[in-house]
Design a binder for these strands. Structure first.
Lengths: 154, 154
DNA sequence: CCGTATCCATTCCGATACTG
DNA sequence: CAGTATCGGAATGGATACGG
């Protein structure tokens, strides 16, 4: 299987993952979406990524409609990368991932990153999965319906 | 930068991504966690992954404590891969990713996968990010606190 | 059925040098 | 500052053959 063929997979996880799931893309997206880093050299320095790789990832992410290039008015050729709506919506994936990493890869309160509500300073709650009527769902409550054939029971 | 050095990054997203974010791992995890596929050949067939690659991914995921091997009693050497608690908790990441893929890579109701509550058949709600006191937070409401130095404002 | 071992092609990545 | 071009080494991936 070619990696790119996932773009046509009949599965939203596969397609979504195909867009952001190569080695550096998600990290770049995180920097732009969550941390608001828009400048090329800033991303490069903080991520420690090679310039040619960063360049190709940014181009790919722009092609996919996740990021946009904006020219900064002032002199020189400064540019900024900004997340589109499609890119911004990824925070709903990034926040749970961050919480999962925090839980399983750091000791108790040892994690150097913390998410808070900007206006109140209050912590962000653990993400919960809920049904349409608001009840919290565990993994065992979930069922994946396959509309094109075989059903799955977990 | 070596890829493996992310395991020590001071960032929960980087560490978490390091564990599941290479090309096939997340797809394998999805199959086991969300779809309950535990058998080697079943995962291999459905994913179209080469056997040696699947083998190495499974080993890595077991090493990381995300999956576990269980022997099936009956004759032959059948085994099953099951998600640990650490692995099961990833559904909080997989569900939003699935919803994101559904929204941006499929037409309206054209997506062949649907998540429902097993007991009621009700759809799963769009994941929302909330503060500790339950208010829904947009991306702009979020602030990432850096406990080891520079702060970030988005 | 569940893998492991080997081989080979392709891709990825980082370092360096170069352009506007 | 913001990239592009090129090069060589390393990792990844698929096919095939083999073993418990």
């Amino acid at each position: 299987m070619k990696r790119s063929s996932l773009a046509d997979a009949p599965c939203p996880i596969a397609r979504g993952y195909n867009a952001i799931g190569d080695w550096w893309s998600l990290l770049v997206v995180t920097h732009v979406v969550l941390l608001g880093r828009g400048r090329f050299s800033q991303i490069q320095d903080e991520l420690g990524i090679a310039k040619n790789i960063l360049s190709s990832r940014l181009r790919k992410l722009v092609d996919e409609g996740i990021l946009e290039r904006e020219a900064v008015a002032e002199g020189g050729n400064r540019q900024v990368y900004v997340a589109t709506e499609k890119g911004r919506e990824l925070y709903k994936v990034l926040v749970p991932l961050m919480q999962w990493g925090q839980t399983y890869f750091f000791e108790a309160d040892d994690c150097p990153r913390e998410l808070v509500d900007r206006s109140t300073g209050l912590a962000v709650a653990e993400v919960s999965i809920r049904s349409a009527d608001g009840r919290e769902l565990t993994l065992d409550d979930l069922r994946v319906l396959m509309h094109d054939g075989a059903d799955s029971s977990a």
